[in-house]
Design a protein around this nucleic acid. Sequence first.
DNA 1: ACCTAAGCGAGACGGTACGTCTGGTCTTTCT
DNA 2: AGAAAGACCAGACGTACCGTCTCGCTTAGGT
Lengths: 205, 205, 205, 205
Amino acid sequence: MQGPTSVPRATGRPRSAAADTAILAATREALVELGWSKLTLGDVATRAGVAKTTLYRRWAGKNELVVDAVAELFDELELPDRGSLAADIEGVVLQFAVILARPETKSGLMAVLAESTRDDALRARIRASIVDRQKRLVLAGRARAETRGELAPETDPEEAARTVDLIFDMVAGAVVHRCVVSAEPADEEWVRSFTRVLLLGLTSA
Amino acid sequence: MQGPTSVPRATGRPRSAAADTAILAATREALVELGWSKLTLGDVATRAGVAKTTLYRRWAGKNELVVDAVAELFDELELPDRGSLAADIEGVVLQFAVILARPETKSGLMAVLAESTRDDALRARIRASIVDRQKRLVLAGRARAETRGELAPETDPEEAARTVDLIFDMVAGAVVHRCVVSAEPADEEWVRSFTRVLLLGLTSA
Amino acid sequence: MQGPTSVPRATGRPRSAAADTAILAATREALVELGWSKLTLGDVATRAGVAKTTLYRRWAGKNELVVDAVAELFDELELPDRGSLAADIEGVVLQFAVILARPETKSGLMAVLAESTRDDALRARIRASIVDRQKRLVLAGRARAETRGELAPETDPEEAARTVDLIFDMVAGAVVHRCVVSAEPADEEWVRSFTRVLLLGLTSA
Amino acid sequence: MQGPTSVPRATGRPRSAAADTAILAATREALVELGWSKLTLGDVATRAGVAKTTLYRRWAGKNELVVDAVAELFDELELPDRGSLAADIEGVVLQFAVILARPETKSGLMAVLAESTRDDALRARIRASIVDRQKRLVLAGRARAETRGELAPETDPEEAARTVDLIFDMVAGAVVHRCVVSAEPADEEWVRSFTRVLLLGLTSA
DNA sequence: ACCTAAGCGAGACGGTACGTCTGGTCTTTCT
DNA sequence: AGAAAGACCAGACGTACCGTCTCGCTTAGGT
């Protein structure tokens, strides 16, 4: 999730850690105010109180910077135990919807996804920093449901992986579409309807 | 879906209809070769054999132009009668996936969606030109299924609208996520799995 | 002094004579308000209530149009009999200075002169329409002075031509320089000083 | 030791001095080849091997740039001692004529003079960079003539200034008119005739 | 207590695209 | 055939960012 070189230098002035923080925060601030297309690295540098060179020393460009800035937003996702699989899912979907409702998330995430359609390295970075990072939630939810006896343990690991992917595509896709394309709030009512359909579809014979 | 005024002018040289076609085609060509971020209106004009002014006379900017260029791609969606609701859905989802697999669709659509998060007029244009335009498919599918007796007629019109929206969010969202984020092919197998879950979820008591 | 074709057409709608007048007046008006560099033919056409095509049908471009527009301003120069050669010269120099003080004259004349340094046809047009047209004043002044006995008749016609040219360069040059470069008023006092030097220089043994 | 030398600490990369030279030379080259009206700043930048931004960082526009480019041409004017006032004047007038005969001088100077009729700041710049800068020649010539005893020392300083201005208007005006409007060479013969008239006019009782 | 290599803020640099404007031309309908 | 309207191609305009490159400093660790 960090800049390029994680190898520490032996000599010379060390890089300022504060600069990284300031830059990412400034990036999110600029995303809120300006959106992706009007966000400029010069402006981010100014907001962060940093020279453009400092910024370019750490990130290759706008895409990489925004991926890192947005990725931090998703780390607050959690899976508290709400007592049932349905409630757990509703809870995490709602959290996801809340994060996606923030303008910096919407603008930044959609933009880098758009860019990633022509840049495999970028897509890999997005998956590593954002997407795959959150599959833990699906896995944790399934495990908890199996413990509760709500789901039968999946035996075929390949089939399990396919199911996780499908669930992920359906959950993330639906919420994103609701928030970005339909531009309607993914509120509790909607989440309940969605979760009901999803769960019925997955558990019906 | 077209430029601003559809009102025909009484006087002066009329606008060239050929220019519109050439510009939209050139836009798609440029999207394939360059992607959204490297697409420039000057280049599109050159490819179309048209002056920049001609382009700006018809579209306000890159966003609007790409919306129209991409919208045409979705008009080929159809709903042939495949005998059952499940087969009908699978058919149209597959068509949708095929269209989305094209690089110009992915790049263009995702980019304008990203832009639309900060531009209500643009989002409205996208919905009018692309999204709502295809809801006809959902409605046609439901009607056919009711005729076949696969679905009971929905009595509450408000509830019906909500359901259509939910289906749309789930279908479009999942396919887009599969193609763009997961970057895996939305092939027949995936479509079958997805359709099964969706249909079960919707029809289970 | 007029546009291209002076040959009257036998057939078709005749050209509007009012248009010429309106265009030249609009040109001078635009020169006053905008100056040469910001004067556009589209704007002139609009001011004149005329289509651009009408304008281009009569003049080849901005240069030719402005030459004609400015030339009309110089036609009001006269040489009233003021009783003595010195007074006659002072009178006409003053008239010349008054005309040159008008913004449209200054801007327009200087600009077309600048353009004429690289365009022989334009320079010829300027000489024909403006410069040589006014040499009549020098000739008339000389003739009147000879009649009064103030000047001896020049016998050598070639020498006479050279002198006329020199006088013209000196008079026109000095007044233009005074008005445009020095940007000081060529008022009566200055004209008297100038005329004195010129006349002394020409008549001293 | 710690003086109040508040020299503005030069921070950031210093401007390239070579760029200025290259730009002015390129401007003169372009003036020769294209003339004022077809000279574009983009082209000048290309010729100078410089980005457009570099050019605009230093000059506000075409006018200012050309003034500076032309001003350098006039700095080669000198007043060598030719033994008599008449010879001195002839010499410097001839030099002036030679400079004015160059196409870049004619085109550039006349064009900025034309522009200056509507732009006081530009006219001030022209006077400071070109015109007043050369009044030194008139003053030096007068001083030398007084030393030689050819002219009586002028007592009234105001009258002296007026005379200098008049001489300047007459000399510069006549040469410019000869070269630009009449488009005849200001050769030795013409210069001799002109100088004779001027000097007689100024020195006759 | 220096040395030195890297980091830093500042800002100029060569480029590229922007969206606008103007110059001339062409096409349409009306006169 | 001329005129008004306005679309058309071509290309310059001046601006904004890009990502790179000097500058003169600062800040450490290694000697």
